[in-house]
Design a protein around this nucleic acid. Structure first.
Lengths: 117, 117
DNA sequence: CTATCATGCTATGTCTGTCGTGGTATTAAT
DNA sequence: ATTAATACCACGACAGACATAGCATGATAG
């Protein structure tokens, strides 16, 4: 047990992406690297999962795409978070608090001795 | 926000069911009532979700079904947890700890002032 | 005795998010 | 030239959750 299976974190991919977009516009490859490092390699989002999340969230109005026309490097699609996106993110944070509370009533703690790190 | 959407808790239905089975054999209707009350009405598992979880987990060897032949009330299918089921449950608990740790790096706490239930 | 409600379970098909596979294209380094 | 890292996308498969619908028993009320 050193990484997270996808159907456990399912439903929080969008939240993680939006969190990173709160700090400013970004694009696919960068987001995936940030998720990797912020999670300390414990969660690696799949490319297809990421890009389909972009598509879905843009359709839902949570993010907007645009192109960087300073135009020195590679072609990229940038995304920025919208106001509905911020609201959605906050909802998900509240929902997380509830979920955590509920799930933990069904979890037995202990006996995985605190691994350092 | 007073209930939990399903794809958030997806991946923990099995864990919740197994937790309840740790205390002894049980059956569908009872489990659903217990999930409701233990979660303080915050999560209501759908019947079809519950019974398909039973089927899946029995196929995976995490639970076993049997009939109560004291036979005074309705026909029920009871389930008991197996050894692999216990092991699986403990794995999920460990995974939960990891998941929680990761997800919380992407969550902004605060500003949902503790609503009194 | 029949209607109704709570209990208890199952069959069938749909939907959604994740992901495997495979492909395209640009840039930088060897 | 070739390779690796970057950057993205199309397509289809799959699994879990769920809507809908149905069946059957037992208890309670009229």
């Amino acid at each position: 047990m050193n990484s997270i299976s996808s159907d456990v974190i399912r439903g929080y991919n969008d939240t993680m992406i939006l969190y990173l977009l709160l700090e400013g516009p970004s694009y696919g490859y960068e987001i995936s690297k940030q998720i990797k490092s912020l999670s300390q390699e414990k969660y690696l989002i799949k490319e297809t999962t990421l890009y389909s999340a972009f598509t879905r969230m843009e359709k839902n109005g949570y993010i907007e795409s645009f192109n960087d026309n300073t135009e020195n490097g590679r072609r990229r699609t940038y995304y920025r978070i919208t106001e509905p996106g911020r609201a959605y993110y906050l909802e998900k944070c509240a929902e997380w608090a509830l979920t955590k509370e509920v799930v933990e009533r069904f979890i037995k703690e202990g006996n995985y001795s605190g691994d350092n790190q």
